[in-house]
Amino acid sequence: MAAVLALTAVGLSLVFGVMRVVNVAHGEFFMLGAVAAWFVTSWMPGPPWLGFVATLLLAPLAVAAVAALADRLVLKRLNYDPEATIVATIGLLYILQQAALSLYGPDARPVPAPFELRLQLPWFGYSGYKLFVVAAAGLVLLAVWLIMTRSRIGLVMRATQIDRPTAQAFGIDVDRVYAGVFAMGAGLAAIAAVLIVPIQQAHYLMGGDPLLLSFIVVIIGGLGSLRGTLVAALLIGLSDGVISVFYAPTLAKILATLFVALVLVFRPQGLFGAKA
């Protein structure tokens, strides 16, 4: 849970950090990833792992393409105005949700796990697939960190984040960077969905929880801070899992929301965010 939440929240944080866009439709990109996973695994012949590998490659690409299109058709036309894009992404949320309802239907559908493995530890058993999810999410997050800190693409993204006009004065095509970042953020949400969907099920309304938790995570971690997002995802993901198992999922959400309220009151920039 924490690993998948970290992936989803990093996507949201990246979009806000670089573009200053609060993407309310982020949860729907997560949902599209899960729905795409169902389509690909349903149509793909052969063993489940083959369908899963194909999904892991195709679903994020497809969702990223949808996001890039949305950026061109909607956000760019609004000149990435922070307030207008909130309203626009709310609209996008409903468009994507209703499109999924029309094309995929109202049913929750299972997606098979790529492999069945149960690790029997001395005191309890644990799903091998869940450990795989943690490892895969960790690898993707490491890749994101390397891209942001060690690559030219990351340098360009950071320059755009720091000062858009100056980045343009050095030949950086900011519109292209924004389209890429929006696609990357959506792609990360889709990867998270593909990883989690064999544990949950694909449903057209499944985007709400990841969106809420991602917002909680990025607010606690500090908007735009990757390090803060990771720490907060771990904190919220683990506490959500433990409280949901031993008490109730609703209590977990109530406590997380309370924690956000406390952070907003005592440290509005988040645990790792820079002061405005």
Binding site: R152, L155, A159, D163, T166, F170, G171, I172
Partner: peptide, 20 residues
Amino acid sequence: RRLFGPMTVAENLEIGLMTR
């Protein structure tokens, strides 16, 4: 000046070198 403040000197120069 409008430097990319959180970046290092080398990274600022790299931004300049990218285009031309």
